[in-house]
Amino acid sequence: MNLKKYTDYALRVLIFTGMKPEGELASIKEISETFSISQHHLSKIVFELNKLELLETIRGRNGGIRLAKKPEEINVGKVVRILEADTVLLECFNKETNHCVISPACKLKHVLNKALHSFFAVLEEYTIKDLIVNDHQLRELMGIQ
C-alpha cells in the first residue's frame, strides 16, 4: 500500500498542530518550512482538513491553524480512509474500468481486498495522540519550543 503524498502531508499537519501547546496556533508557513512542503499545497490540505472538522482555521493578522479536536479524538485510520477513498489496488477493483478477462474467477482481488481492510484496521487502532507520545524528540526535530 502506497499512500498519496497528500495523505502523508495531511497526517504531518495533524501531528505538527497536535504538538503545539493547547490553544497555540500554527501557521502554514511554519509547517511548510519544517517539512519543506509548498505552502500552496499545504493550503489545499488545510482547507480539506478544516472541511473535515479536524482543523480550525483562524483568519486575520494573528490567525493560524490548530486542531479542532483533541489529538486522542482524531483516529488515524479514519483520516487515511477518507483521504484515500479512491484507493484502487487493481483494475478489477473498479467495475467501470475493469477489462481483465479472469476477473470473474480470480481470487487475487479478494486477497488484496482482505489485506486492504487489515491495513485500515491497524491504522484505526491509533490516534494522533498515539503518534505524538514522543513529543520531546518530535519538538526538537520540528523546532517547536
Results as ranks from 00 to 15, higher is better:
2 N>G: 13
4 K>S: 12
6 Y>P: 06
6 Y>C: 11
10 A>W: 03
12 R>T: 00
14 L>I: 00
15 I>E: 10
16 F>H: 07
18 G>W: 09
20 K>T: 02
20 K>A: 07
21 P>S: 13
24 E>W: 08
26 A>V: 05
26 A>R: 05
26 A>M: 03
26 A>E: 00
27 S>Y: 07
27 S>T: 14
28 I>Q: 07
29 K>C: 00
31 I>N: 03
31 I>F: 01
31 I>T: 02
32 S>E: 02
36 S>N: 13
39 Q>N: 09
40 H>F: 08
42 L>G: 00
43 S>A: 12
43 S>T: 06
44 K>V: 03
44 K>L: 12
44 K>W: 08
45 I>T: 01
48 E>Q: 15
50 N>F: 03
52 L>S: 01
53 E>A: 06
53 E>F: 04
55 L>H: 07
56 E>T: 10
59 R>I: 06
61 R>M: 14
62 N>F: 08
63 G>Y: 13
63 G>N: 12
64 G>Q: 14
65 I>M: 15
71 P>M: 06
75 N>Y: 02
83 L>D: 07
86 D>S: 13
87 T>W: 13
88 V>C: 05
89 L>C: 04
92 C>S: 03
92 C>P: 05
93 F>D: 12
95 K>F: 09
96 E>M: 09
100 C>I: 00
102 I>T: 12
102 I>G: 06
103 S>Q: 07
103 S>C: 12
103 S>A: 14
104 P>W: 08
105 A>K: 10
107 K>S: 10
114 K>Y: 15
114 K>R: 15
122 V>Y: 15
123 L>G: 05
123 L>Q: 04
124 E>C: 10
124 E>I: 03
125 E>H: 15
129 K>F: 08
132 I>Q: 04
133 V>G: 14
134 N>R: 10
139 R>T: 05
139 R>E: 11
140 E>N: 12
140 E>K: 14
144 I>Q: 04
145 Q>P: 15
145 Q>M: 14
